[in-house]
Simulated assay, not measured.
Amino acid sequence: MKYLVMIYGSQADYDAMNGIGSEGRPAWTEKDLQAMFQHMESINNDLAETGEVLEGNGLSAPKQAIVVTGGPGGASVVSDGPFGETKEVLAGYWVLDCASDERVTEIAKRVHQCPAPEGSPVSDVVIRPILEQAPGK
């Protein structure tokens, strides 16, 4: 079965990773970043070896987002980020093909254990099965 495994973050999290800390989000050091990158690289290498990863990427900071919303008269309005109404955004994802819910959960637990500086918030890891056919069919 295919799954989308998602990890979330905020603009403050991206800023902290770039050395700009804020309340509840200490600035990351180069050592912190290397530990995180090594952890994620290890997961990605293992998933490539097992053939379970179909795709995966980290995403740019929310302030680099482009959003298309509805405007007056149904016209599309294009805006850039960041957006006050959105506290957390998708920070990275994997599309995995796993044998079971248990296996994808095992992988998500490993992602969740990613090292971060003391006092940093820990993002939830969300797993969503990918529909391979229309619901109800």
Rank of each mutant, 00 (worst) to 15 (best):
L4W: 05
L4A: 12
L4V: 14
M6F: 03
M6S: 08
M6A: 09
I7F: 03
I7Q: 10
Y8F: 15
Y8D: 05
G9I: 01
S10W: 00
Q11F: 02
A12Y: 03
A12P: 03
Y14E: 02
D15C: 05
D15S: 06
D15P: 12
A16W: 01
A16I: 05
A16M: 04
M17L: 07
N18E: 15
G19W: 12
I20S: 08
G21A: 07
S22Q: 07
G24W: 03
R25G: 00
R25Y: 12
P26D: 07
W28K: 00
T29Q: 00
K31P: 01
L33K: 14
Q34P: 06
F37R: 08
M40W: 13
E41D: 09
E41K: 09
S42M: 08
I43R: 00
N45A: 13
D46T: 13
L47V: 02
E49P: 00
T50D: 07
G51W: 02
E52C: 08
V53Y: 01
V53C: 05
L54I: 15
E55G: 15
G56V: 12
G56H: 08
S60I: 14
A61I: 06
K63W: 01
K63C: 12
K63T: 11
Q64T: 11
I66N: 02
V67S: 06
V68L: 10
T69H: 04
G70P: 01
G73A: 03
G73H: 01
G73R: 03
G74D: 05
A75Q: 14
S76T: 13
S76E: 11
V77P: 00
V78M: 08
S79G: 01
G81P: 03
G81C: 00
F83Y: 10
G84L: 09
E85A: 15
T86M: 15
K87R: 04
E88F: 05
L90F: 08
G92C: 10
Y93S: 13
W94K: 10
W94M: 11
V95P: 04
L96C: 08
L96W: 06
D97Y: 05
D97W: 10
D97G: 08
C98H: 03
E102N: 14
R103N: 07
V104C: 01
V104I: 06
V104F: 04
T105A: 11
T105M: 06
E106A: 15
A108V: 00
A108L: 00
K109W: 14
V111H: 00
H112C: 13
C114N: 13
C114M: 15
A116P: 02
E118D: 14
G119C: 07
S120I: 12
S120G: 08
V122C: 08
V122I: 15
V122R: 15
V122T: 13
D124G: 14
D124K: 12
V126Y: 14
I127H: 04
I127L: 08
I127S: 06
I130V: 15
I130W: 06
E132S: 11
E132D: 15
Q133Y: 07
A134C: 05
A134K: 13
P135G: 09
P135F: 09
K137C: 15
K137N: 12
K137E: 06
K137Y: 08
